[in-house]
Design a protein around this nucleic acid. Structure first.
Lengths: 296, 296
DNA sequence: CATATTTTTAACCTATATGCAACTTTTTAT
DNA sequence: ATAAAAAGTTGCATATAGGTTAAAAATATG
């Protein structure tokens, strides 16, 4: 309940008086009590007040979340532990969520299990996968929560089921057109995983359609060099597998070159190389990772 | 006051009943009334409810803002008109804000004037600049609003004044360490403008210090290819002007090459070239924009 | 189609968000 | 240093957010 305190801090740092801040929105005495944690405030009034002192809700939220470390904001915690490969922590989270009841608790638990499997621990049962599938099929408005869940589920679902769900997602995805960065990254991650899966199963035409779809996204996204680069890579591999080896390899090399030039952490290119081993000949592999002719 | 409606939409699309959604937070009848716009809701309760249905506040805010087009959300409107070079629209905004009173209205008006000057229309008086300076000096907690304002003011302020304010900003900037994308872009934009201004005025050491500072930022920001690329460019120009011509040109060329490889809109490189004309010889200019040896 | 579940509405009630006036504290000015 | 002004706080009044119960209306389910 430190909301008021944060607001007070922001207001004071901009040298705005209670009167100025509240004028026409709430009374001075009330604002004072709110700032000192003696009363709650309505959402509408808070929005108006933030607008008055020129603070974005996202900024306010950021400061708010930062103070509530003990908070119920599960996703970031999951993500952190998962990206760090912290199996132990993920197992702890799993125990917590398995104890809780309700639909979402179950989904969270399954998500944690999938993460653990990816890290080489435990397994996911068929029943759990069908719970997942049923859930996705029932949802007609995907938010970050579902995107995140689906992103992890791609490798576990059977191809036709997965593709079917993905088609559902595509129908709704217009919502995310100019969405904030978080969700776009997640959406790209999903596309990336789906395309790789398609290539692996040799559904080459489907993969190509998806690549084309992604390309449209980037017409107006000039500055998103990273995702553009990854897309070169996806397109290259797709064309390569479809028989257009020369142009395919050229695109893959281009992606690698950009990655190399931007000084992306070395292990990233190693992983790329390890992955491409599955498809390319050793000679081709050497070519697409040879940057000596670039001058850098 | 469509907040409730949005919540209802999200809840229904996830097939959650009022009872499930409200359980332990608010009563079912109340939630119903809220969803149908018959009553307001406290900020805390809304946060809890959103968490219950697994929707991020940022997602909710996005949907909310999208519906309120007539809203008081000035910044995005400004930005859109400015980036589109829409002088007429900016002049309309200016008239609106000049009529309003209060400190912020005045600042908004000055900001619009600066935008117009950059686009070649109108001018900013000395008195207005001193109002700006006074404001910046008084603020000890910069939010997006101030960052945005300062970003546009850099070209108008006298160097010592500008540098002084910038130093103040640097002291506070830790707040933005892992800030959401919007603000980081703005912060980079400011650094970029300050460094270019420093180079222009031949404060080469200051420029170099700032470049070094920015480099630290990108140690953990592997995936931000775009800003990394821009940084190569800044560093290159700085080193070039400091006499390390060879390594400087090499960095500038690298930045241009990445920009070229990622298919960034053509006009971007033209602008770069036009800008560099001020510093480089025609021969050097040709070299750093020659990508024929890259193979693409 | 009928039945079960969910949602809405209503009436009345309580808790609390918010306003107003008087008060205390802090800042500013002389 | 002291008065004047501005900013912030407290006590009390009131509007409204929110609860309880129950019944009607709408939706889902079989």
């Amino acid at each position: 309940m430190k909301i008021g305190k944060i607001f007070k801090h922001l207001r004071k740092s901009k040298h705005i008086t209670l009167q100025e801040a509240g004028q026409g929105i709430v009374s001075t005495p009330f604002l004072s009590r709110f700032e000192n944690g003696l009363t709650d405030i309505s959402f509408t009034h808070l929005l108006e007040l933030l607008n008055r002192i020129n603070v974005q809700l996202s900024e306010f939220e950021f400061l708010y979340q930062r103070q509530n470390t003990d908070n119920n904001d599960q996703l970031p915690n999951f993500q952190r532990a998962y990206q760090a490969g912290d199996v132990k922590k993920l197992q702890e989270y799993l125990l917590v969520w398995q104890k809780r009841k309700g639909k979402f608790a179950q989904l969270q638990a399954i998500q944690l299990k999938m993460m653990l499997v990816t890290l080489g621990k435990g397994k996911v049962s068929k029943r759990e996968l069908s719970v997942l599938t049923a859930y996705f099929q029932s949802i007609n408005n995907w938010t970050f929560f579902e995107l995140y869940l689906f992103g992890h589920a791609i490798l576990f679902l059977k191809v036709p089921v997965m593709l079917n769900l993905f088609k559902e997602l595509q129908k709704k995805e217009l919502i995310y057109e100019d969405f904030r960065n978080d969700n776009f990254s997640m959406l790209f991650y999903i596309y990336n995983n789906v395309i790789l899966r398609m290539l692996d199963e040799r559904f080459l035409d489907t993969a190509e359609t998806l690549v084309t779809k992604l390309e449209k996204y980037f017409k107006d996204q000039d500055k998103d060099y990273y995702h553009r680069t990854r897309l070169f890579n996806l397109k290259g591999l797709t064309l390569y597998l479809k028989g257009q080896k020369k142009i395919g390899l050229s695109l893959i090399k281009k992606a690698n070159l950009i990655t190399y030039l931007t000084d992306h952490e070395e292990s990233f290119l190693w992983n790329e190389r390890a992955y491409l081993k599955k498809y390319l000949t050793p000679k081709e592999l050497d070519t697409v990772f040879d940057f000596s002719d670039s001058g850098y």
